[in-house]
């Protein structure tokens, strides 16, 4: 099995500092955050520019070129609801270190992002969700089938669709957590890749609790076959857990210094 893939989530307009830097095209805060994440072991970096309706294309191009030139063609997930911005980002993207990821498609309004990924030989995060939160795994797997077929029809390889079960917040939806984990197992049994915004589970919890919950969640999810996650790589406890699970799953060969590499 391949090593678990982490997608660093800290370049997001939801962080005011990043939002400001994107708006002003100020490279330094972007580069600093990217470096922190890569030094901590992130494989991909997510570039969330928000809806970016007015200047999305220009902004995404700027961000892709900035990051790839600064960090040896680091592979990126292009994260925006603006489809043109994603295409613009891919047009300047260097794929020597990995295909771009389109973040994301779903089974409702954003299903065309599958077609976009197919047309551009990209990976796509396929969120198994329609309108509102799926009520059970029958519904999730129905969306999974729909998204998978759409990708295959457009010439994608199944491995380039990374299925997202939609991690749910414990505070409020505690009874759904095992469902999500079972859904990951279903993806895995079908030989499909998977990913998701894992830290959703700990939303609203005290700051010192979140790394603990996220680590427990990633360990259980990796046991179920999760192959990737969108995470904060600067969460040391989480990254140590991922590295340890990679060892236990025989995804990487153990060495005494495994946490340092």
């Amino acid at each position: 099995m391949a090593k678990f893939i982490t997608i660093g989530e800290r370049l997001s307009t939801t962080a005011p500092a990043v939002n400001k830097a994107f708006t002003q095209r100020d490279p330094e805060p972007i580069i600093a955050r990217a470096k922190q994440q890569l030094d901590a072991g992130a494989t991909y970096l997510d570039v969330n520019i928000g809806p970016a309706e007015s200047d999305g294309e220009d902004l995404m191009k700027w961000a892709v070129q900035l990051l790839q030139s600064e960090f040896d063609n680091v592979p990126l997930a292009l994260d925006t609801s603006n489809k043109k911005a994603i295409e613009a980002g891919i047009s300047v993207y260097n794929r020597s270190k990995g295909k771009p990821i389109v973040n994301s498609a779903d089974a409702a309004g954003r299903i065309e992002n599958i077609d976009l990924a197919a047309a551009n030989d990209a990976i796509v995060i396929a969120l198994c969700n329609g309108e509102g939160i799926a009520k059970d795994n029958d519904e999730r797997m129905g969306y999974c089938q729909l998204l998978l077929e759409r990708g295959l029809e457009h010439g994608m390889e199944a491995e380039d669709l990374w299925f997202d079960p939609l991690f749910l917040v414990v505070k409020g939806m505690q009874d759904k957590q095992m469902q999500i984990l079972e859904c990951i197992k279903m993806f895995s049994d079908m030989g499909l890749n998977s990913t998701g915004g894992l830290s959703n589970n700990s939303n609203g919890m005290p700051k010192h609790i979140r790394p603990i919950m996220d680590s427990a969640m990633v360990a259980m999810a990796m046991m179920q076959g999760l192959t990737s996650a969108i995470v904060n790589p600067n969460d040391t406890r989480l990254m140590e857990t991922i590295k340890s699970c990679d060892v236990l799953k025989n995804n990487t060969l153990y060495a005494d210094s495994y946490l340092e590499i």
């Binding site: 060969l253 153990y254 060495a255 005494d256 210094s257 340092e260 590499i261």
Partner: peptide, 11 residues
């Protein structure tokens, strides 16, 4: 010892 082989290279 495969683990040591890797560890030595890391060190």
């Amino acid at each position: 010892d495969i683990n040591l082989a890797k560890q030595l290279n890391v060190l």
